[in-house]
């Protein structure tokens, strides 16, 4: 997903946009910023500074700088939850653990090698069961006796689930097992950081109440979820952009005001 957040001088959010990314990053970057500006009732020259983050950060032609999603997430989470010390971000492509100190990223771990322990794991397996990934959380909460999924690998887990279904296992127990599997995998990774409260979860999987329940059991602390868990990285990028802008202008350095949209590069003519 591609997200955009515009903030004002008081760090308040003017507008947000969330949309699917697709293959044409540069083209999309332009249309997302255009929509964000429209929603905020602003014009392009009113944007003082723009930070791009995430996997596509190099593909935003009009960005003033690029900062990794790890730093941006930590900043966004720290602003939303000033007591946060640990953040877990489980997105569609990877899972990350962040340690936060004084509002900044201190240390991190991440898994981006395979789908295991990410939102993709749930997407694929929801499809196997024939459900929408959005409904998994609520269904799993009905489980009385969750099934143990022993495979970490998405493909092997799929085979295990098929076997369970044919043996007549209850769907809610299977899904609860999936949530336990992803939570266990993520916590094992994040334990390398020494988990400290408050713990915050972000990313698409934060919308799944079943995974949060399983994570809570593993971690032993309450887990806080932002109102919109998909936007904390983009919000952090905006906050960092504002900091850079203020620092540069206070030091009277020449800073380009207003972004311009270059022609979006496209390979679909």
């Amino acid at each position: 997903m591609t997200k955009s957040v515009i903030i004002d001088e008081e760090e308040g959010i003017c507008s947000t946009v969330t949309g699917p990314t697709g293959a044409e990053h540069r083209h999309l970057a332009n249309s997302v910023i255009e929509q964000a500006i429209r929603d905020a009732d602003l014009s392009l020259d009113q944007i003082g500074y723009c930070v791009a983050t995430g996997y596509g950060r190099m593909n935003v032609p009009f960005a003033d700088s690029q900062i990794t999603e790890l730093t941006c997430h930590a900043r966004g989470v720290a602003k939303l939850f000033p007591n946060a010390r640990t953040a877990i971000d489980i997105g569609g492509q990877d899972a990350k653990g962040l340690k936060i100190q004084d509002g900044r990223l201190k240390d991190f771990v991440m898994n981006d090698k395979c789908a295991a322990g990410t939102g993709r794991f749930l997407e694929v397996l929801a499809e196997t069961i024939g459900l929408n990934v959005k409904d998994l959380g609520d269904i799993s909460l009905k489980s009385k006796k969750r099934i143990r999924i022993s495979s970490i690998c998405t493909i092997f887990a799929e085979q295990e689930i098929r076997a369970q279904i044919s043996e007549g296992a209850a769907i809610e127990d299977i899904i609860a097992g999936l949530h336990e599997s992803i939570a266990g995998r993520v916590v094992r990774m994040i334990k390398r950081l020494k988990i400290e409260p408050d713990v915050v979860i972000t990313g698409g999987v934060a919308k799944n109440s079943g995974v949060i329940k399983a994570l809570r059991e593993h971690i032993g602390y309450d887990i806080f979820v932002p109102e919109n868990p998909l936007l904390s990285g983009a919000y952090g990028a905006a906050l960092l952009g504002r900091e850079i802008y203020n620092k540069e202008t206070s030091e009277k350095r020449d800073i380009r005001r207003g972004i311009s949209l270059k022609e979006g590069v496209t390979f679909f003519k």
Binding site: Y55, T68, L70, T71, L105, F108, M110, D112, K113
Partner: peptide
Amino acid sequence: GPLRTRIEAFIET
């Protein structure tokens, strides 16, 4: 490729 993000984030910290 995936190392790039880790290295850049480490440098940012």
